[in-house]
Design a protein around this nucleic acid. Sequence first.
DNA 1: TGGATGCTTCGGCACTCACCGAAGCATCCG
DNA 2: CGGATGCTTCGGTGAGTGCCGAAGCATCCA
Lengths: 231, 231
Amino acid sequence: MVTTVSVAQVGALVGDPARVAMLQALMDGRALTASELAQAAGITRQTASGHLAQLAAASLVTVSKQGRHRYHRLAGPEVARLLESLMLLASDATAQRPRTGPRDARLRLARTCYDHMAGWLGVQLADALVARNWVEIAEDGALVTEAGLDRLADLGLDAVVGGRAKLQCRPCLDWSERRPHLAGRLGAALCTHSLQRGWVRRQPGSRALDVTPAGWRAFHDLFDIRPPAAS
Amino acid sequence: MVTTVSVAQVGALVGDPARVAMLQALMDGRALTASELAQAAGITRQTASGHLAQLAAASLVTVSKQGRHRYHRLAGPEVARLLESLMLLASDATAQRPRTGPRDARLRLARTCYDHMAGWLGVQLADALVARNWVEIAEDGALVTEAGLDRLADLGLDAVVGGRAKLQCRPCLDWSERRPHLAGRLGAALCTHSLQRGWVRRQPGSRALDVTPAGWRAFHDLFDIRPPAAS
DNA sequence: TGGATGCTTCGGCACTCACCGAAGCATCCG
DNA sequence: CGGATGCTTCGGTGAGTGCCGAAGCATCCA
């Protein structure tokens, strides 16, 4: 079978811990240099260089030269979807051994998932939007309601409701919470909006997000979300 | 990072040609024995047995003993999604080399994609449903319209419209056509319906589907779909 | 009970590939 | 121009693992 070979090749690329670590580091959607990715994966620059060459050859990442730097980023949402699928199944396999490190705790609270927010916060937001009847979530998809379009426009998320399309949102099963959070264009808009307003802040060198005091206030006022009891 | 290891382990599982071939053979949703899977992958039984043990340990497939047979099937839709993601990226990588074998041609025309129909036929059906305004398809999801719910009920797809939920359908990017076809519960219902009515028939030992003369008549009468000019 | 079938385990071989040290390019800066 | 920085290529080593032949276990059938 012809296609089988290629599929296995892509699979082999995501079958190496170092390469996966680099891809995970790129899951926040930003572009990173080879050195940064080498550090993220815990390997030397020359090894990382070889891995990145393979990933680029398979079109999993794209590179753009700027001076003596070479910036790498995920090739597109399909790659992020692939990683999501992998993480979902990986957490399945390790579900019986609940390992919770201090680093994991921050990731579990809030993190980016390519272009949207995931973790406890992401799930809480999804629940709140469903409770307010702004969106509907089912097994096979998610939908922005008429009321939701109006209220989101009130919030200043105009870019999202440009065409008043109902299908601007997609459920994405959270690998730590095992419940859906919001992805798609609405998820991405919520994420950038929260970053712009200073509600959440990226933690350097990680996909984890810090929720600022202003963020907790906003999430409480808008969506009745309070910080979890104890972490 | 703890999770990274597990993710890479899952990735490594889908990074072997033999294992991927077996998983692809299971993509039609049926349960196959170890011997059948060994033949599908072109390896000996004992090698296949080892691979299947690994896949089962990682919860990618489930096994059920029946007498001296051991039936293997995909552990769930998440695994099918993972394979879809892989195939999509794999076809990206090989898009520059259009290889079209005689075996590929049949797969391209119509095939199963876990529980729904894909290939040229799958895309045609999706287009027809969109053209009739039974479903809406956007980048982030798909939606059954009110009219669609009525018309599908007329067709006898009652199971689908049981709750008259609009979100019973999901777009799935076709790796051969590069355009969306219908998945989700509606996609699955269309597939089983077509099989029950004898519109399509499974080809033994393959995911390819044969369209019967009655099928062409039905697809033409219902959706104005004619056989493609030449394959 | 004896033989056939389906499948797994064991042992050894061969191959792939991730890894790093060292050297080689390309780019920026003083 | 010369030094510094970012990155890549090359060579050799070592660990991991896919593969099959042979033997062992479990199940069904006569």
